[in-house]
Nucleic acid binder design. Sequence first.
DNA 1: TTGGTTTGTGACCAAACGGTCATATTCTAC
DNA 2: GTAGAATATGACCGTTTGGTCACAAACCAA
Lengths: 228, 228
Amino acid sequence: MPRETFKRLPETKRAAIERAAIEEFANSPYRNASINTIVDKAGIAKGSLYQYFKDKRDLYGYILSIVQQKKKVLAASLTPPSNSMDTFAYLRWMAQLDLLFRLREPELANIEQYAFLEAPLREGEDPETGERVMGDTRFQDFLTQGILHDDIATWVDTGLAAYILGVIINLVGPYLIARLGKDAESLKDGSADILYEPHTQALLDNLLDVIEAGIARDPQIRKDYYSK
Amino acid sequence: MPRETFKRLPETKRAAIERAAIEEFANSPYRNASINTIVDKAGIAKGSLYQYFKDKRDLYGYILSIVQQKKKVLAASLTPPSNSMDTFAYLRWMAQLDLLFRLREPELANIEQYAFLEAPLREGEDPETGERVMGDTRFQDFLTQGILHDDIATWVDTGLAAYILGVIINLVGPYLIARLGKDAESLKDGSADILYEPHTQALLDNLLDVIEAGIARDPQIRKDYYSK
DNA sequence: TTGGTTTGTGACCAAACGGTCATATTCTAC
DNA sequence: GTAGAATATGACCGTTTGGTCACAAACCAA
């Protein structure tokens, strides 16, 4: 969506503009984000910005595309979800990806969250049935597949559960970071690996155990080490 | 928090101001709510408003107190939670209260939700332990009690679960209303009672069954009619 | 009717908003 | 060197923001 002029910009200048915009959209939801603040921080004139982007929405859309792309790259760098991965392992993988994204790119994660909160009820169309559904269609699909695989209890209302899962995944990040406290620091600077940091894994385990116990057809959690 | 002058105002005028403010704060989060819009809708001069309230925050605080009070009244009109009510019945009662509030007072419910989203991570202090906790302390207490009563599985991380419960209860309302569709209309105009409307009760049942299955020590849901 | 207190009013303020545009500067090609 | 295109600039526009204040109107007791 940026104009051609923007793409021809020297690397450093483009980066400065992107960084300034990211910082601003991470600190304020779209409506309150300030163009003036962005151009000041980027060190360019306001008129210049409007040569690169049609308007505020255009700039915002571009920043959102950066967020998505960066997350995609991170997802690819993480052990990818395999087809053999079971339903809940996949869900755990998603939660871990979300947390890792928040640790590595807190500003981008914030932008993502603002975007989610601005349309938490956005409708999507189920490509399968054409039925209108609410919430992230990813989770809708996820649950439908889970039922087909006999992983999810058939009595679970998939629409409701998909909505709840979306809300949880999108809002649990800040809580986890706060709970991890200084452990989160080690994960950020890379001195610890999220895959092996015990405190982090314990929290993720607990979150997913609750979810699995809640919607699984035959939850393992009830038979394992936790049972008393 | 309103000034004495406001309390002395004729009923109709006070009501007009409250209605205008409620409408505005229900449509926009605090930062974007407009004083100008409020005074226009209330049909008073801007200077008058500032004789009744110190500033925007003061007015907002007053409106929030109305929200809380109205919800309290509604809670009292509903069959109150008894001591003998078990942990999950109490949680279901809370969910039902929230839904009913949304049906009867959609604007007030919206204000409540904006307030929640503006500080979803606000810290509270556990009066028992003095420990700093996140999320609604109500749910923290609720879970602690539940564990004492042997209703909640001991392996559940209460902090995490309390946060999740808070997020769910505060955000599931709009989804439920949308799902109920025209049934929601009957509930609003009083031609149907939420306690007996089957579609509504089925959705609430499903939500609470998932939660119970997720965190209960000995979830009934696994043994009952749903099991296959 | 008078005088004093309480209440009502809207023009006005400085700041910030998104966006525009005439002009200046820089770059490219011949 | 020069013409012409591309890019940079910040003063400026109209609008909106929360909040103030000098003044007018209404009220009330004496």
